[in-house]
Structures are given as C-alpha cells and as structure tokens.
C-alpha cells in the first residue's frame, strides 16, 4: 500500500471548505481505519509491533531522504508504508515488522530505473518477507472481523479517495477482472464460485485494491495503460491462484507492476530516439 496515489494531483484539496494537503489524506484515513479496526476488533498483532513498523519506516525515510536528496523528505509516504506493514504483516516476533519497513523504504532508493522506483514499496517489502522469512511471517487476510461494517467503511473511504484522485478506473478494472476471472477459475476447478469470489470480500483485500495497485509512482501513465495493467495484475493473480499460491495478489503485483513500468520506459525511450529522426528528415531533404 502506498500514499503515492495522492501525489499525482494538485497539492491542495478543498473539502467542505477545509483545505487539506492531499498528501495527508491517505495517512489520515488509513490511521482512522487502523484505529477503528483495533478498537473494534483488536485486529493488530499488537500496538507495539505496528508502532515499530511505522517508526522504522519514518526513520529510514528521514535518513535516506536526507542522504540522497539532500533535503528533509515528506514523511507521509513512509508513514503509510509503515502502517501498511503494521497491518498486513502477521508475526509473533518483533523484528519482521522493523525489517519489512526498512526493506520497503530502502527499496525506493536502491531499485530505481531512470530515476524512478519501480516497485510499490510495501508490496516489495511484504513479498520479500513472505519469500525470505516464511518461517516467521504470514499475511492472511482475516484481520477485520468478516462482518459487513468494516467492509462498507473501507469501500466508502477507499472509493472517495480513489475517485477524488482520478484513479477509480484502476480499482474498477481490477475488481471487474477479478470477478470475471473468479468465475472462470470456478469453472476450471469445479469449486463453488463463492469460494473463488471469497478473497475479494476480505477487507484486507480491499486495502490492496484501493491503495496498493493505484500507486501512481509505480503505475504507468496513460489511463488505458493503467486499466490494462490492472487487468494484467488480476490475470497473473488468477494464474497464481490456479497454482494455489496463497499470497497470489502480492506476487502478481510484484511481477506485473515493475514489468509494465519497464515496458513503458522502453517505449518512451524508443519514442524519444525516433523524434530527432522525424524532425531531421525535412531538414535533410531541404
């Protein structure tokens, strides 16, 4: 999950005559969701673990931002990455929370192409932990109490944020693709269609839908391309699900996200390489 979705638009938002810096919107809402979830259901492994994840993310962001950009970084992104780790990682130990946050933030500074980081930070961190620390970490989406209210809350908050930011088409494409592919999987496996649809009804999955796949820093730029990538994430996830990979959505985004960005960059380079030739031809003729 990332608050990067907020950075793609103007810096200020007039909401009910209250001007709020858009960069604070996601942190505020995710914090509210966290507090409501914890107070209502006690869904966190513990406050201390989540606090550790947030503190680590912020600390690493401050240090690396200062070193590599020479200025104090805005901490909203790190805060949301930390809180995401605190919600999505499940472990009885403390160290995975700190390590996952540190990996997430550091990945932004290390894994860069043409000056852009290509992985969603918390997606990278969580996948790294699931693969490398499988004995100590899991991320099963069962944390919210599978009742209606938390789902409605997440859907409402998420929709408002994403619509405001003009990225609802990504979420919608993914959801529609997931539903269609779930029906296809049910036909292939012979399992009840409800069981194939089941994951998307889990509230944690909705955080993935609203915040992680819509991160503008790690998604392609054209709207049609964003829709295509969202579909491809769902398609690759469907393949992983047929292979019975429990954490299929994380892995799908981990592969499709950077790949699509690299393709976009390659195409942009090609276009840029062609541009001088097109312009120079008349000159040559002349």
């Amino acid at each position: 999950m990332s608050n990067g979705a907020l950075r793609g638009s103007s810096p200020a938002l007039d909401m009910a005559r209250l001007r709020i810096d858009k960069r604070y919107l996601a942190p505020i809402l995710v914090t509210l969701v966290l507090i409501v979830g914890q107070v209502t259901f006690g869904f966190l492994e513990s406050w201390s673990r989540t606090a550790l994840a947030i503190a680590t993310a912020i600390l690493v962001e401050i240090v690396l931002g200062r070193i590599f950009s020479g200025s104090w970084p805005h901490l909203a992104s790190a805060y949301v990455s930390g809180i995401s780790v605190g919600m999505l990682v499940r472990s009885p130990a403390f160290w995975p929370y700190a390590l996952c946050s540190a990996i997430s933030i550091t990945s932004k500074y290390v894994l860069r192409v043409d000056g852009r980081h290509i992985w969603n930070p918390s997606n990278f961190g969580i996948v790294a932990m699931l693969v490398l620390a499988a004995d100590a970490v899991a991320s099963l989406s069962v944390q919210w109490g599978n009742t209606l209210l938390p789902m409605v809350v997440v859907w409402c908050f998420g929709s408002v944020i994403i619509y405001t930011l003009g990225r609802f088409h990504i979420t919608a494409t993914y959801v529609l693709s997931f539903i269609a592919l779930a029906l296809l999987r049910a036909a292939v496996t012979g399992h009840p269609w409800t069981s194939e649809m089941a994951p998307i009804t889990g509230p944690m999955y909705q955080l993935f839908i609203f915040f992680m796949i819509t991160d503008p820093k790690t998604t392609v730029r054209p709207v049609w391309g964003q829709c295509l990538v969202a579909f491809l994430v769902a398609a690759v996830e469907a393949i992983f699900r047929l292979l019975q990979w429990v954490h299929a959505p994380y892995y799908a985004l981990f592969l499709v996200g950077p790949t699509s960005l690299l393709v976009e960059m390659a195409l942009a380079r090609r276009r840029a390489a062609r541009m001088p030739q097109v312009q120079s031809a008349p000159l040559a003729q002349a």
Binding site: L140, S141, V142, N146, T147, L148, M151, H191, T194, S195, E196, M197, A198, P199, T201, G202, M204, Y205, R241, Q244, W245, V246
Partner: peptide
Amino acid sequence: YDYSKVAGAHQTI
C-alpha cells in the same frame, strides 16, 4: 490454499 481463501471471506461465505 483453499482453506485460506475461504477463511478470509465475508461471513456469508
């Protein structure tokens, strides 16, 4: 895989 798929679902499922 199937267990975790349903375990995280809404109560009606």
